[in-house]
């Protein structure tokens, strides 16, 4: 923690090396939160970069009223929510996304030679289904599922990051899980078999 304070001070003075060291421990988590919130690997990468740029630019404003980690994750949430808001009125189609024709799905015939760790990571069909179902949740529900169930933040931490009372977080997590279950209803059998396999 002392080291974090030292790095923070140096970063506030514009020391890039210190800043990079300071955010080392946050990069992967920020990236993963963004990935689960926006659902796409490349976008998540861009957003995570945007988060750290914002953090760097705003460092002088950070007065330590919350912990540095809470502040970073709050910015992550804000950046991702901004992106989701922008997307609201436009349909984004990824070239590796399936095209839906009536009720039948057809794989796009475009070869994508980028490394696709998102697909590698979601080889498991069930996890892929859940990942997609999370994208159908409202922003408020999505963030608590990502933070609590995927990232394992405590209720208290989530309350601080979202800047709302812990009671709100409790009820929101409950409702979010019920919504997610509702979305996954059509894959009920597949889900039940998940732990049996």
């Amino acid at each position: 923690m002392v080291e974090e304070q030292v790095l923070l001070k140096k970063s506030q003075e514009g020391d890039i090396a210190a800043f990079e060291k300071l955010i080392e421990g946050y990069q992967k988590r920020v990236f993963n939160i963004a990935y689960r919130l926006v659902g796409n690997y490349d976008d998540a990468s861009e957003l995570a970069q945007e988060v750290f740029i914002k953090v760097f630019k705003s460092l002088r404003k950070f007065k330590g009223q919350s912990s540095f980690s809470t502040w970073v994750y709050s910015i992550t949430k804000n950046v991702c929510f901004d992106e989701l808001r922008k997307r609201k009125n436009k349909k984004i189609v990824y070239i590796d996304e399936d095209i839906k024709y009536d009720n039948n799905e057809m794989q796009r015939q475009i070869e994508d030679d980028r490394p696709q760790p998102d697909i590698i990571a979601e080889k498991n069909e069930v996890k892929k289904i859940v990942h997609e179902a999370i994208q159908e949740l409202s922003q408020d529900h999505r963030i608590v599922i990502v933070m609590r169930d995927i990232q394992g933040f405590s209720y208290e931490e989530i309350a601080r990051i979202l800047n709302c009372p812990e009671g709100t977080v409790k009820s929101r997590i409950n409702r979010a899980r019920l919504s997610l279950k509702q979305i996954l209803q059509k894959n009920e059998e597949l889900l039940k078999g998940y732990y049996v396999k």
Binding site: Q27, K28, F31, N32, Y35, R36, Y41, A44, S45, A48, P117, D118, A121, V126, K127, V130, H131, I145, D149, I150, G152, R177, L178, L180, K181, L184, E188, L191, K192, Y194, Y195
Partner: peptide
């Protein structure tokens, strides 16, 4: 069902940078 879903979420691998 809720337990299964939260279990799947917790099992999701971290994606590499």
């Amino acid at each position: 069902e809720l337990k299964v879903i939260t279990g799947i979420c917790a099992d999701m691998k971290e994606v590499e940078l």
